[in-house]
Amino acid sequence: MNFTQLLQVIALTALVTLGLALLVVRLRAVLRGWLHRRLSPRYLKPLGVRHRAARQEPRND
């Protein structure tokens, strides 16, 4: 394999990788849209650390 063929293989690999990455991004967006249409809003809340609201003591003035 000479240098020109090696460059062609590298370029082809880069194009295929880019194409697959764009396909995955598109499929993810389609899946997310489908889930938003199918699921009720309570299942679409973001996950993470939940904090309780601080209780405020009544003021006795």
Score class of each variant (00 low, 15 high):
residue 53 A to F: 05
residue 36 H to T: 07
residue 15 L to Q: 07
residue 51 H to M: 07
residue 1 M to V: 05
residue 47 L to H: 07
residue 20 L to M: 12
residue 42 R to C: 02
residue 46 P to D: 07
residue 10 I to Q: 13
residue 19 G to T: 11
residue 23 L to N: 07
residue 27 L to V: 11
residue 40 S to T: 13
residue 24 V to G: 02
residue 38 R to I: 08
residue 33 G to P: 00
residue 6 L to E: 10
residue 7 L to M: 11
residue 26 R to L: 02
residue 41 P to C: 12
residue 37 R to G: 08
residue 2 N to R: 05
residue 44 L to Y: 04
residue 41 P to N: 15
residue 53 A to Y: 07
residue 51 H to K: 08
residue 41 P to A: 12
residue 20 L to D: 06
residue 9 V to W: 03
residue 61 D to Y: 04
residue 33 G to V: 00
residue 48 G to E: 01
residue 61 D to R: 12
residue 32 R to C: 01
residue 54 A to D: 05
residue 10 I to Y: 10
residue 44 L to Q: 15
residue 42 R to I: 04
residue 55 R to E: 07
residue 4 T to S: 13
residue 37 R to T: 06
residue 21 A to M: 05
residue 47 L to F: 02
residue 31 L to K: 09
residue 40 S to C: 07
residue 5 Q to T: 04
residue 4 T to P: 00
residue 2 N to K: 06
residue 34 W to Q: 11
residue 23 L to T: 10
residue 21 A to V: 08
residue 3 F to H: 13
residue 39 L to G: 05
residue 44 L to F: 03
residue 18 L to W: 00
residue 27 L to C: 11
residue 53 A to Q: 13
residue 13 T to M: 07
residue 35 L to T: 10
residue 44 L to H: 09
residue 34 W to E: 11
residue 41 P to H: 13
residue 4 T to A: 13
residue 20 L to R: 07
residue 43 Y to T: 01
residue 13 T to C: 02
residue 54 A to I: 04
residue 20 L to I: 12
residue 8 Q to T: 03
residue 60 N to H: 08
residue 50 R to A: 05
residue 19 G to C: 09
residue 12 L to E: 15
residue 50 R to Q: 03
residue 12 L to H: 13
residue 43 Y to V: 00
residue 15 L to K: 10
residue 37 R to P: 00
residue 3 F to S: 15
residue 10 I to G: 06
residue 18 L to H: 01
residue 14 A to L: 15
residue 29 A to F: 09
residue 10 I to F: 09
residue 43 Y to Q: 10
residue 40 S to W: 10
residue 54 A to R: 13
residue 13 T to Q: 10
residue 45 K to N: 02
residue 57 E to I: 02
residue 34 W to T: 12
